[in-house]
Computed example of a mutant assay.
Amino acid sequence: MPVRSCVGCRGKGPRAQLLRLVLDDGGLAVDPRAVAPGRGAWIHPDLACLELAERRGALGRALRTRGPLDAAPVRDWLSRKGSA
């Protein structure tokens, strides 16, 4: 079973338990099926891990991009999934 590292908490877990994030038209997007082309960053589907990744600047490093990334689309996605 493939293992990935969360860029937020740095914990390891099975790929099926983490959420893949990618750059889509220069913005951060969720790749729930983990099939989008290009480089991805993995996080636990938890707002705490997303906040840690933002605070540490880990998303930009993992995706090899410069400048700040707007995590609002990911935050919205996590909020919708948490309330479902």
Rank of each mutant, 00 (worst) to 15 (best):
E54V: 08
C9K: 01
D46R: 14
V22T: 07
L78Q: 04
A72E: 02
G60S: 02
R64M: 09
C9F: 03
I43P: 07
A16T: 05
G11P: 06
G27N: 06
A16Y: 03
D25G: 14
G11S: 13
Q17E: 15
W42D: 00
P2R: 05
G26E: 08
D70M: 05
C9Q: 01
D25Y: 12
K12F: 09
G11F: 01
R15V: 10
R4N: 03
R20A: 02
L50F: 03
S83G: 07
S79P: 08
V30P: 10
L59F: 05
L23M: 06
D31K: 15
P37Y: 07
A29Q: 04
R75P: 03
M1N: 06
G40H: 00
L52V: 15
A62L: 03
V7P: 08
G11C: 07
A34H: 15
A48N: 12
D24I: 10
L19A: 02
R15E: 14
L28V: 00
R61C: 15
P32E: 09
R39N: 07
S79W: 15
G11K: 02
D46L: 12
A16C: 05
W77R: 07
S5V: 10
G27E: 13
L19M: 14
P32F: 02
H44D: 14
R66A: 11
G60F: 08
K12G: 01
K12V: 01
V30I: 08
G82R: 11
R20L: 05
R4M: 01
E54G: 00
L21D: 04
I43M: 06
P2T: 01
R75K: 05
G82D: 15
P68K: 10
P45N: 09
C49D: 12
R80K: 02
E54R: 06
C9M: 00
K81L: 13
A53W: 05
G57D: 10
D46I: 14
R56C: 10
A53K: 06
D46F: 13
R39K: 09
A29E: 02
M1Y: 10
A34P: 12
R4Q: 08
P2S: 11
R4W: 04
D76T: 05
K12D: 03
W42E: 08
A58K: 11
A16H: 12
L18D: 11
R20F: 00
V35Q: 13
P32V: 05
G11V: 11
A41W: 03
V35D: 15
Q17K: 13
G26K: 03
M1P: 07
V7I: 00
G82S: 12
S79Q: 15
L50A: 12
G11W: 12
L63K: 12
V74I: 06
H44R: 11
V74L: 08
L63V: 02
E51C: 14
D25I: 12
A48C: 08
L59V: 04
G8F: 01
V3S: 06
L69T: 07
R20D: 01
L28P: 01
A16E: 10
L19G: 10
V22R: 05
C49Q: 13
V74S: 03
D76G: 03
W42H: 02
R39I: 01
E54K: 05
A72D: 07
H44W: 12
L28I: 08
P45Y: 04
R10S: 07
P37V: 03
S5H: 15
V74A: 08
R15T: 09
